[in-house]
Computed example of a mutant assay.
Amino acid sequence: MPVTTKKKLLLALPALMLGYLAIVACWAWASFDPAMAGAGVPPAGQLSPRQTAILTLVEDPNFFEHRGVSLAKGQGLATISSAVARDVYLYGARFSGTAGALQALYRGVFDCCKKIDLGRDLMAVVLDARLSKHEQLALYVSQVYMGTHEGRQIRGLPQAAESYLGKPLDSTTIDEFIGLVAMIKAPNAFHPLKHRAAYDTRVARVRALVAGTCRPGGWFDTQLEHCSPGPASAASRVPSPTHE
C-alpha cells in the first residue's frame, strides 16, 4: 500500500470515530424517553446511607461527582452510570425502525469490543445529563446482575439478598451487604455457594477497602489483590456518604 494511502487512512480514522460518536450521542439523546419508558425507575431509598457509601466506594468512587465516566482509582472500565446506560439503551426496550437498527449496531459493537468501544461511555454521559444520580443508583441496585441461583438469573441487590441470605435487603448487616457488593465484579466467579473460597477471598479484600486499611493501586485495580483483612471492624469504619 502506498505511503500516501496509509496516511489518508490514518487521517480518516479519527474523523470516522468522531462521526460514529456524534451519531451515538444524537441517538442516545433522542432515544432517552422511549428507553426510560421501558426501564421503570424504582423508588429511591432502597439503600441506607451506609449501604450507599459502601456500594459507591467499591463500584464507583466518584459516582456523585462525575458526569457519566470516571478515571478514579479502582474504577476500571465501567461506572454505575455506564452500567445503567448499557442496560437501558442496549438491552432494555427494543426500538424499531432506524432507532432499532442503530440499537442493534451499537449492541453488536459493544458485545464485540466493549473494552475499546467508547459508544457506551457516551451513552453514559447522555444518561447522566438526563437522569438524576439517585434514579441511576435506584436502577443499578434493582437490575445489577448477581449470578445464577437454583437455575435462574438473579437481578438486583434485593433479589440477591433474598436468594443468598434469605432476608430482605434492608435487614442485612453491614458485613452481609459487603458480601453482596463483593460479588458484583464477577458474580459467578465470586459465588458464595459455588466458589466459596474465591468468594471469601474477595469479601476479605472488599472488607479491607471499606475498613480503610487499603486503597486501589490504580485505575484498573479492581481485583484489590494487595488487600487483606484489616484489624478494624469494617462495620465500624464504613464512611458516610456526602450526598443524600
Rank of each mutant, 00 (worst) to 15 (best):
A204Q: 05
G151V: 07
L11R: 14
P239K: 08
P231K: 14
P42H: 08
V206W: 00
I174F: 03
A232Y: 06
S142V: 09
R155M: 11
P61Y: 06
W29N: 12
T5L: 10
L122F: 13
L209I: 02
H195D: 15
E65R: 15
G217V: 04
K8Q: 15
G100S: 10
Q136Y: 08
L118I: 09
G179K: 04
D175S: 12
G156Q: 08
K133P: 04
T4P: 04
A182F: 06
K6S: 11
L127I: 15
D33G: 12
A39S: 09
M123V: 07
Y140C: 05
L18R: 14
T222P: 07
V144F: 01
L224S: 00
P168W: 06
G217P: 05
G218Y: 05
I178P: 00
V109R: 02
D121Y: 10
K6Q: 14
G119V: 02
K73D: 11
R120W: 02
M183W: 02
V3L: 15
I178L: 06
W219V: 15
I154L: 10
A35S: 15
T201K: 13
L47C: 08
R215W: 00
F110N: 07
P216R: 00
T148K: 12
M1H: 14
R130K: 14
T5A: 10
A37V: 09
G97A: 05
L57E: 11
L102P: 03
Y106R: 03
A53R: 04
I54E: 04
Q46L: 07
I54M: 08
L165D: 07
A101L: 13
T173R: 05
L139C: 04
G100Y: 12
L21V: 12
G92F: 00
L71A: 12
I178Q: 03
C227Y: 00
A25C: 12
K194P: 06
N62Q: 14
Y145D: 02
C227N: 01
A93K: 15
D117V: 04
G68Q: 06
G74W: 00
K114P: 10
A85N: 05
F190H: 02
S163G: 07
G217M: 03
V84L: 09
L18S: 15
G119M: 03
E244M: 14
A22P: 02
A160W: 00
S132M: 09
A234K: 02
R67I: 10
F190Y: 13
V88F: 04
